[in-house]
């Protein structure tokens, strides 16, 4: 594997995605930059509409970014030819949130898993034996019983459906997988099964993940680094432990304190946020969180966007007030 050649498997620089709508321009992703080292997991957290899924989809070019650089293994995948992109797609996979709507209801489990193998000519259509053994191997890896070979998605529960999605993603022997809320639709007991499966696959296959979620307990369990997004921008980025131990951005603080811990007597001093996120349509200049910020809103916050500044090693924060201290 040529992984060691690159310090960063992915390097995203100033990624921007605007959607034109009747009401104005939606700033879905507005100047997001980050890097991911091979074999690591970057967690992207944030609430609905913060642009985390759009970011995930842009970096694998399921959505064309408006501007920005996405450097994968040293090459900007926004600039490569279509043929090269098709090749790169095999190495970059995605797992979606809703395992039901991402599977073709008229195909059996084996057909669904075989599709990418046949489409990418990894296995020849005529070579039935090889195809079947590869499908069974993949099913075993993700923990699907052999008897489900000819089942249809509607016969399976959410956890098993998600396993099909995972089998499909790893069938291409990818280096990198975007997991877009892979466990949000599942019950906790099943959620734990899938999280453990993903973790096992990461070590066994040396995968690099972007893990997009709104669930902070899950991201803490899973990610090495965490980026917190708010209205299209990264407001804080740090190694997972650092972020949980020492959150700096007022939004991160509020987000972490809003986690409901399933333990008694843990009623902490909650940082209650007022109001709700403002509209991502043509947002005014300046800190986007300033309207809800409890911390300290000064004249500094409004006229210009706060830059993402490295406060301590690998710990980045975008807040005028912290920057000044």
């Amino acid at each position: 594997m040529p992984e060691n050649l690159y310090e960063n498997l992915f390097e995203v620089k100033n990624l921007i995605k605007y959607f034109k709508t009747g009401k104005g321009i939606v700033h879905a992703v507005d100047g997001v930059s980050f890097t991911i080292k091979p074999g690591k997991t970057l967690g992207i957290v944030g609430e609905s509409g913060c642009g985390k899924s759009t970011t995930g989809r842009c970096i694998i070019r399921l959505i064309e970014p408006t501007s920005g650089e996405i450097i994968y293994k040293g090459r900007d995948i926004c600039k490569i030819s279509k043929a090269e992109m098709t090749k790169a797609r095999k190495e970059i996979q995605i797992i979606f949130q809703d395992p039901y709507s991402s599977l073709n209801p008229r195909k059996t489990v084996s057909q669904i898993i075989s599709e990418p193998l046949l489409h990418n000519r990894i296995i020849d259509r005529g070579d039935k034996d090889k195809l079947e053994s590869r499908i069974l191997e993949l099913m075993e890896t993700v923990g699907l019983a052999e008897r489900l070979f000819n089942s249809y998605p509607h016969e399976l529960d959410g956890g098993r459906r998600q396993r099909i999605g995972i089998a499909r993603a790893i069938s291409m022997q990818p280096d990198f997988i975007v997991c877009d809320e892979p466990v949000s639709a599942l019950d906790v007991s099943i959620q734990a099964q899938i999280l453990n499966l993903l973790k096992r696959l990461q070590t066994e296959l040396g995968l690099t993940f972007i893990f997009i979620t709104h669930n902070l307990s899950v991201v803490n369990y899973f990610a090495d680094d965490i980026a917190v997004m708010y209205l299209g921008q990264v407001v804080e980025k740090a190694p997972a432990e650092e972020l949980f131990d020492n959150p700096l951005h007022p939004y991160t603080k509020a987000l972490l304190s809003a986690i409901l811990v399933p333990e008694t007597g843990k009623k902490r001093n909650r940082v209650m946020l007022h109001g709700e996120p403002s509209s991502p349509i043509d947002p005014p200049a300046g800190c986007r969180f300033s309207k809800r910020c409890n911390f300290h809103v000064s004249a500094l916050c409004v006229p210009r966007d706060p830059p993402l500044v490295e406060i301590s090693q690998n710990h980045y924060v975008a807040c005028h007030c912290i920057e000044r201290q």
Partner: peptide
């Protein structure tokens, strides 16, 4: 089955 927020190392034991 629930990831512990204050103990990242604790592994999940699914049902």
């Amino acid at each position: 089955s629930i990831p512990k927020i204050n103990n990242k190392k604790a592994s999940l034991v699914p049902i």
